[in-house]
């Protein structure tokens, strides 16, 4: 670690992570390598694919486009924070039940993106879901099953 390394302290999924890192370390690499949370996936490292989407202080964020030092003091939720212990949340259940994933590499980003979306729009139309996830790339599914998953989760969450 070089002399210009900086202290970073973030709360991820309710746990406090403190450490030092290079100022140029991305938040994604910090989460994956320093915190050992590999559910946040890196597909492109230039902000296009959306696989590394997490929630920082209530807003969806691409972890590859943010530096770890910028997140100092933040509350972060990653895909590992969605389930309650072994119990999946309704959105996760919906992706599993509706074949909303194939290889699953885009799935964490899709889940985090949809998490924020459903909080703001609990009764979305299919077109609104399509719009919502159009910043996230999926190469396997053709998106139809992801749209169905999000709609199904919205219905379950309204119950």
């Amino acid at each position: 670690m070089s002399d210009d390394s900086q202290a970073v302290s973030v709360t991820i999924n309710g746990h406090l992570y403190s450490g030092t890192c290079e100022p140029r370390l991305t938040l994604a690499d910090f989460i994956r390598h320093e915190c050992g949370l590999t559910g946040t996936h890196l597909g492109c490292e230039h902000g296009v694919c959306g696989a590394c989407t997490i929630i920082v202080d209530g807003r969806s964020t691409r972890a590859c486009l943010m530096l770890a030092v910028q997140a100092d003091g933040s509350e972060i939720t990653t895909v590992e924070g969605l389930a309650n212990g072994a119990e999946l949340n309704p959105l996760q259940e919906a992706f599993w039940n509706n074949h909303g994933l194939q290889c699953g590499f885009c799935t964490p980003g899709m889940l985090m993106c949809a998490t924020e979306f459903l909080e703001g729009n609990p009764e979305p139309t299919a077109d609104e879901v399509r719009e919502c996830i159009s910043g996230n790339l999926c190469r396997c599914t053709g998106y139809a099953s992801i749209v169905a998953s999000v709609l199904s989760a919205a219905e379950e969450l309204r119950r």
């Binding site: 590999t38 559910g39 590992e80 039940n97 699953g104 964490p108």
Partner: peptide
Amino acid sequence: VPRADGQAKVSGEAVYGVD
């Protein structure tokens, strides 16, 4: 039928090659 790897993939537990 639910896919056998579904739980691991929606929870972030799945270990991919890059992991």
